[in-house]
Design a protein around this nucleic acid. Sequence first.
DNA 1: GATCCTCGAGTTCT
DNA 2: CTCGAGGATC
Length: 697
Amino acid sequence: MTVPAGITKRARQLREEIERHNYRYYVLDAPLIPDADYDRLFRELQELEAQYPALVSPDSPTRRIGAAPLSQFAEITHRTPMLSLNNAFDADEVRAFDRRVREALRLRQAEYAAEPKFDGLAVSLTYADGMLVQGATRGDGYTGEEVTANLRTVRAIPLRIAGRRAPALLEVRGEVLMLKAEFEQLNAEQRKRGEKEFVNPRNAAAGSLRQLDPHVTASRRLTFFAYGVGTAAGAPGFTKHSELLDYLERIRFPVSREREVVHDVEGMLDYYHEIGERRARLPYDIDGVVYKVNDLAAQEKLGFVARAPRFAVAHKYPAEEATTTVEAIEVQVGRTGALTPVARLRPVFVGGVTVTNATLHNIDQVRAKDVRVGDVVVVRRAGDVIPEVARVVPEKRPRGAREFDMPAKCPVCGSKVERVESEAIHRCTGGLHCAAQRKQAILHFASRRAMDIEGLGEKLVDQLVDRHMVRTPADLYRLDVAALASLERMAEKSAGNVVAAIENSKRRPLARFIHALGIYHVGEEVAKVLSRHFGSIHALMDAEWEALIAAKEQIQKDNARRRIRNEEPEEPLLPGVGPEIMRSIANFVTQPHNREVIEQLLAAGIELERSMRANSAPSTIRGRTFVLTGTLPNLTRDEARREIEARGGRVSGGVSAKTDYVVVGADPGSKRDKAVELGIKMLDERGLLELMKDSVR
DNA sequence: GATCCTCGAGTTCT
DNA sequence: CTCGAGGATC
C-alpha cells in the first residue's frame, strides 16, 4: 500500500514533536504541554503507523517499546574498554592526585572538569550514522550485556542524534539511573501490589535494566546522563573534556547541569563541598564527584595504569554509618583452610541494604579493633559495598564482655588449628578431610572463572558432600539426573540442567583447568602463565621444579648484570612465578591423591584446549612475537608487555627471524638496526595501540 | 632490605 | 573491597 504524501508528512511532524516534548520533559525537565496533550499526539502517531505499516521506522518514538522479550542477553565487547576510576577518600588523596598529574605534565596548574558521580549503572550507547543501534552495560569493562531494547525505552536517551551532520560512529558513555522520586513511587506501587520493594534507586535501576521483557523496563521510568565518549568517527574534534560535554548537550543528550570547570586543587575541594551540601536535595543519588583533566591531549599523555585512567579520580563522600550490636563472632573455613572470624550483627539498614554479617578478616584485625561479642559497633559499607565494622563504641560495652579467641580446633572437622609464625592467618590442618575445605574446593572448581559449571551452587554442593555423593571434582562427572533429583529442591528439570552444565564444562582452556585445581597461590593469572609455558597438564605435572627454580634464579642474576651494562635482558622464565609458588605447585603435583584426581578428570572426558580463550575473535596480536626497544612516550615497557600478552602475544628479548614486530621508542638500541637488517615490521607506540584496538583481550 | 606492584583469597548482598 | 603475601626492582 502506498502512503499518501500528506500522511507521511504528518507522521514526520508527529515524531519530531513527540521527541521534542520527550526532550523537554525527560532531559530539560521543563515540559511545554500537559501530559494529556502529549498522549494525544502519541496515540495519533500510533494509529497512523497501525494504518500504514510502511511508515514505521526504527527511530519512531512508538518503537521505544515493543520489542519481544528475550530469553537471555547477548555478550558485547566494547570497542573502547569502559574502565573504572581510582578513588580518593580525603583531601590529601585529591592533592596527591593533582600533584601526580602536574608532575607528569610538567605544569604548575592543571584544569579539571568536575561533575557528580552518579550512583547508577554505566552503559555505552552506539550510534551509527546518528541512529541508536546498540546499548550495552559496562559489565567487567571489556565485555558487557547487550540491552538495546531496554535502553530504547529510556526516554532521556535519543534514538537519533539531533543536527544535520551526525557522526558516522559515536559511542556515548553515561549512567542509567532512577530518580529518587520515581523510586519512592515505584516502591509505593510495589507495596500496594504486595510485591517486593527495592532497597535503593540503584538496585531498582539495575533490576529494571536487566529485565528480559522491555515492557517491564518501559514501565520503570529510568533516566540517563551522558559523561563521555568511547570510540568516535566523523565527530567534531575537541581539545577539552568540557567542550565534549557541551557538544553532547547540544546534540540533545542529557548532561549533568552540576558540572563545572575548576582550575586547581582548591577549586576541586570547593566543588566537592558544594555538591556535598546539596547532595540530599539532588533528585538522584550520587556517591561522590569526579575530576577529569580537562585537556584531552593531556589525558592521552597521562594514559592508564592497569584498569584505571591516570587522568581522572573519583572523590567519594564518606560512607554512611550505622550502629548495631555484635550478636556473635563465628569462624568460617575457606578453601585453603583459612579460618575467618565473621561478626554476626543485629540486622541494620546502612548504605541502602540490610547488613547482618561483616568479616573481621583475621585475629589481628579483631584485636586491633577490639571487637567483642555484645559490643555496640559502628558499621559501614567499605567503598559502599562490603560491610565492615568501623569501630567499637567502648562506653556501651556490656560488663564482662570477653576478648575473642580463635578456636584451637576447626569448627567444622575438629582438626588442629595452626598459625604459621609471622603469618596473620590461622588454618585448619584437616586438608581434604575437612568437609568445609572439600566443599569450597568443589565450588571453586565449578566457579565461573574456573570450569564455569552453571547451577552448581553452595546449597547443592553442601548436599552432595554431606551425602558422600561427591568427594572430589572428578566425582561431579559421574553424577546422573536420577542421583541429583533425589536431593532437596532439585526436580528432574533442574537436575537435567546441572548434568548438562557439567557435560558442557568438559571442554575448557588449559589455564582455566589449572586455576580450577585450586593449587595454593595459583590463581587466574599464574594459571595463564603456567598454561602458556607448559602447554599441557602432563608437562606441568612432570616438571622438574627444583631445576626450574634454579634456572629462573640464574636468568634473574644474568638480567641484573645485563641491566647494569645497559644490555637487553633475556625473557624471564615464568614471570610472576617465584620459588614459593613453584614449591606450592611441586607440592600439589607430587601428592598421589591429586595426580589421581587429575587422571580421573581426564578419563571422564575432559578436553583441555591450549588457547587461552576459546572462540575469541581473530587477532592481529595473538600468536605474534614482539620485541620492545627504546622508551615509549606513554606506556612503560612493562605495561606494553602486559597489554600484548593480555591479547595472546609474546614479548621476547632479542630480534630474530621469528620476530613479527619491533616496537620502537625513543633512543632505540641495536635492535632497531637488526630489525631493519632482517626486514621486520616496525611500529611506534601509536601503531601498537592501533593493533591493540582491533584485538580482543 | 625497603618499597612498589600484582595477585590471590576471602567476603556481602541482591 | 580489603588485606596479606609473593615477586620484581633498586
